[in-house]
């Protein structure tokens, strides 16, 4: 067997192991399936009652942002999962086996994609109930989902790196919130950025969370015709700019994470 085949095979074994857990850890089930549900309903009715989108509906606007926010938060699972495995000594066991070096982190990020797909399905269903629609054809919508999932996948490598470095479930939870809250809120996720103070607005326009959400909304056909086209360059080229971020994050954090994995031995 070739080296790549072995690496893939090992990654699949690790991913299978992670997937088995979802039915055995109720808290995981809640986070992956119930949180997105609560989130969509909460924002639709609480924010939706106060925010007007000219020529369209807030709930249509919201769902695209909700996908990006929920999945970006979901990436903390990657870091939490790895930190937990380090604390429990399972990473040491893996590292003493003749398995492919990258398999544990690749397997982890792969199973987290599956969690994300599940969350997305739940959110899309909940979105449909509150009035969100795909207006641009199914194929185009799939591209939109694909972009959000790809961005979440890249982001989970950042969290993988943090998890391997910080090695504490609590710390990764806090660090995750510290980064992800501002990133997902100073963006067009929940409200149009027109009313932001100028510095925040510039940040929001260049924030990949905004561009991913914008690109997804375009694919879903959730941008009302009366809304003027964005003038900021990243939003004008939202899909391209977002993919650039995905590529850059992966290029930096895949090697960093694998190296961090090599160095994780719990030693005293």
């Amino acid at each position: 067997m070739g080296r790549l085949t072995l690496a893939l095979g090992d990654g699949v074994i690790v991913a299978q192991r992670n997937m088995r857990k979802i039915t055995r850890q109720p808290e995981l089930l809640v986070a992956v399936l119930i949180m997105p549900l609560v989130f969509v309903f909460l924002f639709s009715y609480v924010f939706g009652s106060a925010i007007e989108i000219e020529g369209g509906s807030y709930r249509e606007f919201l769902i695209g942002g909700a996908f990006v926010m929920m999945l970006t938060f979901g990436s903390t699972f990657t870091g939490i999962g790895l930190a937990d495995d380090i604390q429990k000594g399972i990473i040491d066991r893996f590292r003493s086996l003749p398995m492919s070096r990258g398999a544990v982190v690749f397997g982890r990020t792969a199973s987290d994609v599956i969690y994300n797909v599940l969350s997305t399905i739940v959110m899309a269903g909940a979105g449909y109930l509150v009035g969100w629609r795909i207006n641009n054809g199914f194929g185009s919508a799939l591209l939109g989902f694909g972009l959000v999932l790809l961005f979440a996948y890249a982001f989970s490598w950042i969290m993988a790196y943090l998890g391997l470095k910080v090695r504490s479930v609590e710390a990764i939870n806090n660090a995750g919130s510290l980064v992800i809250f501002p990133l997902t809120f100073v963006a067009n996720t929940f409200v149009p950025t027109d009313g932001f103070p100028s510095a925040l607005r510039t940040f929001a326009e260049w924030n990949p969370v905004s561009t991913v959400a914008h690109a997804a909304r375009v694919q879903f056909g959730n941008i009302p015709e009366t809304t003027p086209d964005p003038t900021a360059w990243p939003l004008e080229n939202a899909a391209l700019y977002s993919l650039g971020w995905v590529a850059a994050i992966l290029a930096v954090f895949v090697p960093l994470s694998i190296r961090a994995f090599q160095q994780t031995a719990t030693s005293n």
Partner: peptide
């Protein structure tokens, strides 16, 4: 080396959820 050894660690590295 990893192919030729077995390690049983102090932390008892079994996966609790398996």
């Amino acid at each position: 080396v990893r192919r030729r050894i077995g390690l049983s660690g102090q932390a008892a590295a079994v996966d609790e959820n398996l």
